[in-house]
């Protein structure tokens, strides 16, 4: 059998440059394998990077979406917008071509005070606002009788109030209103005082009339402009000195 097979190969063509060709092919194979290894490494690195990116994108929280509330508002705001008490008072003051600004010390727990200025910046008195808690009732004083309680006026919103005007002293003219919300006894006092020490009755007039002060004091927004814990119930030494003091019952 072996001789038969060997005889079948008798017409074998010459080998030629087969050995050199095999060596060249081997070199090409080696280079190709190196390229394959390098490309495989690069592919692995690329896959790892893509997987890492995908996993971090999916698993880790992204940047928080910017909500409208988080967007800083750069536009200037008038002080009345930031101070709800000032918002109530600025209406009638502005209507008189006057300006109202916080007066230092401008506020404390249960009270605010503002300076009123003329159009050219001159002083024109001040306005003080104080709140009290009087759930058990409140005796609205009668100036002529220290032992009597005044019969209050009442608004449709359920606010009882009494107006007081003191014009006898030209250096201390005051329009004051004490207003009490009946439902919970929250009481607001607004006192508009004319510029003191001028010696001039006209220049010492309060910046707001008694009616305007009453409108501000009975404004439903005013008691809510103070915090729940704020109040000038005694003892509250820092609160404004009122021409007509407030004495809650109980």
């Amino acid at each position: 059998m072996t001789s038969v097979l060997e005889r079948a190969c008798a017409a074998e063509p010459p080998i030629g440059d087969a050995v050199d060709d095999i060596v060249r092919r081997a070199d090409r194979l080696r280079r190709r394998r190196v390229r394959v290894v390098i490309l495989a490494g690069l592919a692995v690195v690329l896959i790892v990077v893509l997987l890492g990116y995908a996993l971090t994108t999916v698993l880790l929280p992204g940047p928080k979406p910017r909500t409208a509330a988080a967007v800083p508002v750069a536009q200037p705001r008038p002080s009345a917008v930031l101070d709800p008490v000032l918002r109530v008072l600025s209406g009638p003051v502005d209507a008189r071509d006057l300006r109202i600004v916080p007066r230092q010390p401008a506020s404390g727990p249960g009270w605010r005070q503002y300076a009123v200025l003329t159009a050219n910046g001159g002083p024109h008195g001040m306005i003080e606002v104080a709140v009290y808690d009087a759930p058990a009732g409140l005796c609205l004083p009668v100036l002529a009788d220290p032992d009597a309680c005044a019969q209050p006026d009442r608004t449709r919103a359920g606010v009882e109030y009494a107006r007081y005007s003191a014009r006898e002293d030209r250096d201390w003219q005051v329009n004051e209103v004490i207003a009490r919300r009946v439902v919970d006894g929250r009481t607001v006092v607004v006192q508009a005082t004319g510029e003191r020490g001028t010696g001039d009755a006209e220049r010492g007039k309060p910046p707001l009339t008694a009616r305007e002060v009453a409108q501000a004091a009975t404004d439903p927004r005013l008691p809510d402009a103070f915090g729940l814990g704020e109040r000038c119930n005694a003892p509250a030494l820092a609160c404004p000195v009122l021409r007509v003091p407030v004495r809650p019952a109980g």
Binding site: E12, P13, L29
Partner: peptide, 17 residues
């Protein structure tokens, strides 16, 4: 013979590498 030569060369080239 041509195919046989090609196959033998490819085999030995792979064997070298």
């Amino acid at each position: 013979w041509a195919q046989a030569g090609e196959l033998a060369r490819a085999t030995l080239a792979r064997a070298l590498t």
